[in-house]
Structure formats: structure tokens, C-alpha cells
Amino acid sequence: MISIKNISKHYKTVEALKNISLEVNEGELFGIIGPDGAGKTTLFRILTSLLLADSGQAAVDGLDVVRDYKELRRRIGYMPGRFSLYQDLTVEENLHFFAAVFNTTIEENYYLIEDIYKQIEPFKTRRAGKLSGGMKQKLALSCALIHKPRVLFLDEPTTGVDPVSRKEFWEMLRKLKTQGITIAVSTPYMDEATLCDRIALMQHGELLTIDTPANIIAAYPKKLYRMEATMKKEEVKTNPKVETCFLFGEYWHLTFKNDIEPTWKLKEIQPTIEDCFVEKMK
């Protein structure tokens, strides 16, 4: 559904994307996970025909992002990271506007946005600029969906959103997936990775890995242990047996060069995506 071949892009001295290739299947919920500056937004802008790559090819739903951009734009929905609806239009006016631009009506595809839109419908006469962050997000998603796109691009929809609202947003995405829409979503939150069918871990314009979350976790190269973080930091860090140690909340996550430290109370654990990301960053 999305096909990217050897895409590169630079801005002045910064190489934003370095020879990226990846495929997203139809109906997949695909996550691009990486910190700010990884190149996520650049990639999304190229895929939505808003930016030209320096080299390489990309196609979405069989349409070349350069040659077929007009048809492409009809078939995709895009929710940029920065809120970009019309602040001076009301909730309802924004939705109506986007429906009209795509030659459709709110009624025609209402079933698609109903679950999301009904949460903000009580405020439909309020100007978009006066909405809270969570409501803006729901309106932006509704507007990106109103023309029933085949592929949805969501650029960091949950950045700065609290954990409970983030969970609710992902529940909405799972529901959309059942409608057959292919979804590409980027996020800096590692814990959201496990909610995707497949993910690409991204850093400094490069893909560190592409696979299902389960496979990435299974491919973690070492035994990982956790230990309660009661000991002094230096004592843990300077132990010669320790290879890596990172704090994860109230626990240390540790790997050892060879043998484990026998005096510590350790429990072998399954790595999280964040452990995998840190391991691949080295």
C-alpha cells in the first residue's frame, strides 16, 4: 500500500533521510517510532506529496508521489503534527469545509467518523481555535477522514498528550483499522509501539529496524534483567560485570558482559521496545 525505495532528503547540511526503503501492507497499522529529528515528518511530507525527495521513489496505493500527486491527494488523509485546521471556523464549519474540498458531504461518510466526532459534537458551534488539545486532535482526525481515504498519515498525533488520552486515541485507531484503512502513524513514545502491527524504529534519518513489535523484542541480543533501583547509581554503573544499565522507573534494566552479579536480586525480563531502541542506538 505504501512503497518507499531508497528515499533520501537533505536540508542544507542536515541529512534528514538517508536512503530509506520500506513497504507497508494494505490494512496495516504501521508505526514509525523515533525521537524528534529522526526524520519522521520529512518522510510523511514526501509520502503525502508535500515535499520532494532528493532521490529515490515512493508510491502510495500504487500512485507515484511525484507523478500522480493529484490523484494521490484524493486517496490519502493527512493529520500533520502541528494543528492546521482553520482556527476561526467552528468545529462544524471545518468539517464541512474539508468535506467540500474533497467533493463529498459529511453525511456520506459520517459512519466513519461517528465514534470520534460525536465526542466533540456538543461543541460544534465553537471555533476550532478555542478547543482544548484533546478536542483539536479529534477534530483534526475527523477532518482527515471525512473523504474516506484509503491511507491515513498521522504525524505525532499523541505528542504532549497525557497517558490516558493517548490510550483512548489508540483505541480509535484500532477501530479505524477494522474499516480497512491503512494507517501510518509516527510517535516519539516507545510504549505505543506495541499497539502497531509493524513498526520501524528511526533515528538520525535512518531506519534501525522494521518488524513486528514481537519479533523486535525476540531479537534482543542479550539476556535482560531487572533489579529494584534502591542501590546508589554509581555502584550499579561501576560494577565490572555490568555491560549496560538503564533506569526504567523504579527498576534498573541490566545486561551483563558474561556472568551476572550473584549478590544482586535480579529477575530476567522480556525487553520493552524502549530497551530494543536503546540497544540499537549504540
Binding site: D36, T159, F246
Partner: peptide, 20 residues
Amino acid sequence: DEPTGGVDPLTRRRFWDMIQ
């Protein structure tokens, strides 16, 4: 105010070292 939003996991941990 949300000092670690968007940074990578290693940078996030190094920042907490500074805080501590």
C-alpha cells in the same frame, strides 16, 4: 514544564541525571 518531550530514550535518561 515537560522538559523531556520528544527526545530519545538515552537523552531522556541523561537529562534526569542532570536533574538529580
